[in-house]
Design a protein around this nucleic acid. Sequence first.
DNA 1: TTTAATGGCGCG
DNA 2: AAAGCGCGCCATTAAA
Length: 331
Amino acid sequence: MKKKTPSGQPSTDEDSLAELALDHPLPKLILEHRTLSKLKSTYTDKLPRSINPNTGRVHTTYSQTTAVTGRLSSNEPNLQNIPIRTPAGRRIRSCFIAPPGSKIVSADYSQIELRIMAHLSGDENLRRSFAEGEDIHRATAAELFGVPLTGVEPEHRRVAKVINFGLIYGMSSFGVAQNLGIDRGTAQTYVERYFQRYPGSKRYMDETRKRAKELGYVETVFGRRLWLPELRSGAPVRRQAAERAAINAPMQGTAADLIKLAMIAVQRWLDETHAKAKLIMQVHDELVLEVPDAELEATQAKVRELMQGVHRLDVPLVVEVGVGENWDQAH
DNA sequence: TTTAATGGCGCG
DNA sequence: AAAGCGCGCCATTAAA
């Protein structure tokens, strides 16, 4: 056992058990049990108890003053962590349904944090990819592996996706290696090649760390600040954690600012047009509406337009809209 | 019985 | 010495 918890106990988290599962049959069974019991205890058992008898609906509470980046948070119950990544999880999501004569409409920003990185960094290559509507992970893979867009293998794209997301989080080459299950040297090579191909991105990361340390805070495109006193901590662990937060916050926070503006624009339009459609949920980069069939076409088009046009960045904002009887189908 | 800490895991 | 950001909530354990 290599990995330890903060208190020094051997870790039994998913990664650790997955590793043990290569040599023993039991860990896999434990992981399957964990997955199912998580879904049962947190969602299947709990959500029905959250139904308000007066409305027949589940009502969450959003907080505007909890998340340091400016995101909303959702509690009692949390409707921002409803499962979607596994078939069993999606069955839970499919229980969020529209009443007869209405549909669920889901509108989500595509790759919004990477687009914001392109905007903030001004990286020409990144900007061009988004301007031309390329699949960004595919484009990054093509750069990393020196192949044309049409020659990108799924495995290449998977590597590129880890690196793209890792950058948003301030991940090191060690983290890339860990995540991909490759050796550190290879991971280091990928990261170096990434920064060669996207030099503006490299410049932005360095500049953000430097500026953040001087000022003691970072800010979003709209000026929302996150103060990070630990950037000057003498404890390397704390200081480096603050540096990663400093890298991430302008991107996560700008995305939060944008969707809040979009929510205001969408609700204003609904009010002004006396629409029967309702804005019912927000999940960080996604708005969910309940829409009468008669309003479906107009609502989809207008919500997309309002979200994409909420603010002009140096790259286009793209919104994907889906419709269905339930929340799962709407994706 | 309630509260707090811990480890773990659901989502973006 | 640690190594990926932001949340909320579950079961378990120990303490109040």
